[in-house]
Amino acid sequence: MGRVIQFREAIAEAMSEEMRRDETIYLMGEEVAEYNGAYKASKGMLDEFGPKRVLDTPIAELGFAGIGVGSAMNGLRPIVEFMTFNFSMVAIDQIINNAAKMFQMSGGQFNVPIVFRGPTASAGQLAATHSQAFESWYANCPGLKVVVPSNPYDAKGLLKSAIRDNDPVIFMESEQMYGDKMEVPEEEYLIPLGKADIRRAGSDVTIVSFGKIIKEADKAAEELAKEGVECEIIDLRTVRPIDYAAVVESLKKTNRMVIVEEAWPLGNISTELITHCQEHAFDYIDAPIIRVNTADTPMAYAPTLVKEFLPNAERIIKAVNKVTYRD
């Protein structure tokens, strides 16, 4: 039986269900307890689990991220919330040098079952420091897994898998998705990490994307369908590891590909996919693959500058027209 819930409720349900089945899981972060979450993604959890398992922290990301990693080395399974991944930059030493490396450095003695979660990328006119997408940064680092859901159903199933995973997982949401609604089953389900989803089937062109920006691809596909162009949209859902097989399979069918990613263009998930496709599916590519990324600048404040910075449906349509030689 399904019911319609918000993205933020899907996150809270995933955490709460897992915390009910495993006493070693706890949640900490800024405003997660008494305030019910800066974006209400942990609403009701302090009431249910108490202050031992739902902990407000001071604004000290480096310190509490490190305490999370240490506790994961000693029998616990922490969920560490960053109010945004922009703030994870002051904690990144603990993520890259400790969480991601511990298993190897210790020769397989200490794994780190931890989830770092929170919103990523832009969320309106928040200007340069609050609008950054670090998916490709974290995905670059061996030892981590990086999950970027695009809807409430996926968010719940993926977060439950992330919490049960025995390796460190970066789980990236969006302030602009927390209010998104969708039918989500009452009964338990999990979605495996590392598996892409065919969000829309089509035969003319493949659009690969992930996270909230995929909604721009949806809009573009709707418009293009009116003109008889059928887009296949692949939602990666996980960007480390990447489900390359799903991408290549779709490319072999459509022979044309556009990648939509909210990220700076130098060395991101898009460039990785293009490299992979030309290495492994060269003979199936009928037009140069195009990526639609952010501008190669920090995001600025004014609405005109935000529009110039971000990928949008209009640009995606142009890119599709180019790879299908309709421009």
Partner: peptide, 17 residues
């Protein structure tokens, strides 16, 4: 300095458990 919060984290787990 990277090990300092880890040490507190080990202690956090011991208190919790």
């Amino acid at each position: 300095g990277g090990q300092i919060p880890l040490g507190a984290g080990l202690a956090f787990a011991d208190k919790y458990l």
